[in-house]
Design a binder for these strands. Structure first.
Lengths: 193, 193
DNA sequence: TGCCCTACCTAATGTCATTAGACATATTGG
DNA sequence: CCAATATGTCTAATGACATTAGGTAGGGCA
């Protein structure tokens, strides 16, 4: 016994993330993660600070991955075209990583955990950048960015939760939502220009 | 001992809802609810089917209350004006009942729990009705209703989770979001008319 | 008055998170 | 090449919680 398996924090968080995506975020328990890794639950405390610590690490990972996806989507286009791609990438990420995505949405007050807060803010930075590039005046960027984030987050959340029961195509609904948002952004640009 | 307190299912669910609003939905545990009611945890099983059953009851209550609020807001105005009031009422409800609101958002697949699914669908019925009244053609109503719900749900969720860290007014952001949605609805009406 | 049903109870079990403290393996300095 | 240390794992024990089983008091009704 007491053999070394040779894990580190990254391995633990990655296993937890995989478990969350495969079995839902409620399935992320120290016992379950330990089972996946072939070790005993208390051994996890050498790598993460209990369950809250693990969830925080998962949130950091989720924010980082989401940010990468959005930034990658943003490059290669400009302004509103870039914003469209960001929207698509947002939903794609949430669909591909349902458990991990949910971890990034845990409540975090600004003063409470600055590192996590900053990482989450950084993840949605591409949205603000694209709005700026699209010619939205600074005074309205934050409001529009919040609107876009709200719509995207709400959509993927409802989609994941089975909130769209009607037979109409969910893809088409998303397309309409993005069109609606883009029209709003374009109109702001127009009325100020 | 073994004195009757005289509770019924409604009392238990109401206590749990109050607890959720006051202390967050994670605080809703059978032990905590029992403490509030002055009884022992196992006694709750006479009224609800364990913790899952209690949460389901809370979701039903939340959907019902939200539906009432939206329906009340919808009456007294028509079309887009009605939709505006619905949006305001949605956020007001979520702010006033943060815990209960969250309970209504649990994942429910259409075939899994029809009663709850129907109650949730009924809650957002006023949105569809207002869109119809506003002259949105039937083929696009579901898509627009999904867009509106997504935006509203996402906004209140991010607001509750502290996701809006920038100093800009959250009220103003919400106002802009609603304006954006209403403009989208109006433009659909225009392009078809 | 006696019966029963309802709403409560205690006792016991299982799962999970968590802490404390032991121990084996790898690493590093002499 | 060996001793000291650091690291990653373990077992044991505790406590919170959900849940089941089975007992009991007291109100309503024949």
């Amino acid at each position: 016994m007491a053999r070394k398996v040779g894990l580190d924090r990254q391995d633990v968080v990655a296993a937890a993330a995989a478990l969350a995506d495969a079995a839902g975020s409620e399935a992320v328990t120290l016992t379950a993660v330990a089972n996946v890794l072939g070790i005993r639950p208390p051994s996890l405390y050498a790598h993460v600070s209990g369950l809250p610590g693990l969830k925080r690490e998962m949130a950091l990972l989720a924010a980082s991955r989401l940010g990468e996806s959005l930034a990658a989507a943003a490059s290669g286009a400009e302004g509103i075209a870039s914003l469209r791609r960001i929207c698509a990438a947002y939903r794609t990420f949430a669909v591909a990583h349902p458990g991990l995505y949910g971890m990034a949405q845990r409540a975090v007050a600004p003063g409470e955990d600055d590192e996590l807060y900053d990482e989450l803010a950084a993840a949605v930075w591409p949205v603000l950048a694209a709005l700026a590039e699209a010619g939205v005046p600074e005074a309205r960027r934050v409001h529009l960015a919040r609107s876009v984030r709200s719509a995207l987050h709400g959509f993927v959340q409802l989609e994941q939760g089975g909130g769209f029961g009607m037979p109409e195509s969910v893809d088409e609904s998303f397309h309409e939502l993005v069109d609606l948002l883009m029209a709003g952004v374009a109109s702001v640009r127009r009325e100020e220009g």
